[in-house]
Structure formats: structure tokens, C-alpha cells
Design a protein around this nucleic acid. Sequence first.
DNA 1: GTCTATATAAGGATAGAC
DNA 2: GTCTATCCTTATATAGAC
Lengths: 208, 208
Amino acid sequence: MSSQAMKTIPKRKTREEILELSAPLFAQRGYDGVSMRDVARAAGLTQAALYYHFADKDQLYLEAVAVQFRERGAVLNELLAGGGTPLKRLERFVTGLARMMATDKDFLRLMQWVLLDNDEVRQSTLAKQVFRDMFVAVHDLASELDPHQDAHLLAMSIFGLVIFHFQTGATRKFMPGHRPHQDNPEVLARHVCELLRRSLAAADGEVQ
Amino acid sequence: MSSQAMKTIPKRKTREEILELSAPLFAQRGYDGVSMRDVARAAGLTQAALYYHFADKDQLYLEAVAVQFRERGAVLNELLAGGGTPLKRLERFVTGLARMMATDKDFLRLMQWVLLDNDEVRQSTLAKQVFRDMFVAVHDLASELDPHQDAHLLAMSIFGLVIFHFQTGATRKFMPGHRPHQDNPEVLARHVCELLRRSLAAADGEVQ
DNA sequence: GTCTATATAAGGATAGAC
DNA sequence: GTCTATCCTTATATAGAC
């Protein structure tokens, strides 16, 4: 088989493949919960081979997470880039974020692991690399939605309203008033948008 | 020294002491991040002694977490038990929860670990044992605040607005618009209460 | 680039003395 | 109830052949 024929199955670089295949493992069980053996098995390699591509487990983990965050961050930033009234853009972002959290469970979990990370360097690196861009956009949107409020707090509240709901996903099932349709991202997005729309409308009425 | 004289320093049962001393460890580094050796050191015992009190690491962890959750759960339930208008009770609860999250970082982290737990049994046990009581009370409050809304979603949003803010604590420092006073639980509580108050007032205006 | 083999440490858990 | 000593497994990481 010539290298020409191989082109039909595009052979990704092993390094990238390792990062892509290890991400779900880290998402599911966290840094301490995943061994280099696990990663090697998932990648169809031996443990030793991993050390050709990465200096140590720390670096592998950090890069795997960073890739996931960059990918998802780009998607979310597109939601905010489009035009429309601030309220329309809010709806678009909230709905998109809710859909992502519902679809991409692994990403949600990765985010939770990062938030629990004790390593200050790792955390600030990821925070700046990824969260920041996204937060800046929502922060700006927040100031447009209500120039009189603390945009930082409002932006964080927008994230929290969506994300916390999915963080509690597995636990929520055991709580009163739970019905399956609440797991639908569209339903949650509507709830959050309504809550925020009402609040902002009322704030607009209470002139400073 | 007679056992009478010892009474001035009330000697807690070793078992309880282990649970109390291991909780901060599990909060900081999670189940996988803490070894039985670590726990033993913290408790001033050898590893082997732990196995006299607990069948295995799993049981020790589960009980340590449960204790913390019961203690904090009781505090939060008291906030909700008192009288006053629904809005007043909401304010009391939100403020109390914010204060707890700001003060008791370990508890916040324990909660985050539990939310990431893969063990369905462990998660549902804790969910039912602790979250549930607390959630029921907030759920009822939510139906009082606005009988026309989905109380389950509204209750979850109330939790999310407060808790997410502190979950992101370490990361938030790197985000635009951050100012130190936003870390003050009173400031956050005011923000959340205002946001909800406005939303509920507006919902009241839009008669169904 | 990937393998086999191995060094070295750390992990959970138990046996048996006291 | 707690200790010492130890077993066995799993972990990260490296050396050196191919």
C-alpha cells in the first residue's frame, strides 16, 4: 500500500490523537482518576510511547484540556459575535450554551475539574486562555443589557444560571418537582431568558 | 490524672475525630487525591488503625462527607424555617448561603467533588440525605414566590446564582470588571436578591 | 516512534503482637 | 484500639532494543 493510497484515511498525527482520545477520560475521572496506562490503552499505544510525545502526565493533561477549551470557546464566541439587539444576543448565547452543556457532557465535566484544580498556574493559564475571551464578550453584553448594574456580577450570573443547572444534572433527578423535560436545553434556556428579561425590564423601569 | 479531670478536655471518640480531620483533606484534593496514609497522618494514627474504624476508604470518605453535609444542611434549613414574607425569607436564605460559601470553602469544594462523583450510589445517597431536604424547602419557597413558574427550575436557579459565583472564585480574579468587593458575600447576596426581586415583580405584572 | 523490560515509589489493605 | 511489618497492586517514569 503506497502512501498515496493512505490518503483516503487521513492519518492524524499521533500526538493530536492522544490529546483527543484522552480528553474524555480526564473529563470522566479527572487527573488523578486516569493513569497513563488508561491513556495508552485508549490511544492504542504502550505507556512508554506517551513519553515520547509528552514530558509527563501533567503536560499531557494540560494540553488535552486546553485543546477542548479552545474548540468550545471558539463556538461560544461565535454565538456572541453576531448582530441583533442585546436581548436577542443574550437569547442566542444562553440557548447555545445550554445546548452545548446538554450535548457535550465531557466538556462540562472538564470545566468542573478545572474549577477544582489546586494548581494555581494551571488554573490561571486555562482561565486566561479560554474563559477570559468568552467572559469578556458576555461582560460587554451585560453592560449593554443594563449599564447601571455591575456587569461583572451580571455576566457571572448569566453563566451560573445555565451551567449550574447541568452541573447538578445527575443529582437533580432526586429532587422534588423534577420532570424529564427540564433536562431539555431549550426549556432551561427559555426559563433563564425569561428570568433575565423580566429582571432587566424591571430594572429599566426603576430609573436611577 | 483521673478520668474526672479529663472532662475539662472532652475527649471525642476517635472515629468522629477521623471523620472531622479527614474532611478538609477530601475537600481540598478529592477522593483520589487523598491516601489513607494522608488521613492517618492528619489523625495522628497509623494507617492500620483506620481500618479498625472503617471497612475501607470508600466508607470513610462517604461518612466524612455525609457528616459535613448534615451539619451545613441543618444550618441552611434553619434559615428557611423562620417566618416573614416569601421575599424576606428568600433574602435571608440567599444571604446565609452566600455567607456559608464564602466562609466555608471546604464545604463548597466537597459539594463540587460530590457533583463530579461517578458512583451513582454514593451520589444518590448524599443527594437524598442532604441536598433533598434543603431543596424541598427552597422549592416550596419558589412556589410561594411565583406560583405560575416552574418551582423546580426557579429553585435551582436560586442555588445556581449564589453557588456558581463562589465555584469560580479562584478563576474570577482573572476576569474583566473584577473588583475585590465582589468577593464579599453581602455584595453578591444583594446582587442576587435584586435580580430575583425584579424578575418576580415583573412576572407579577404580566398576569397569566 | 514505538516496543519490552524494569526501576522506584505510592497506593489499599491485612496479619498478628501488644 | 493501636502498633509494626508486610503483601500485593498500581502508579509514574526511564533505559535501551528495534
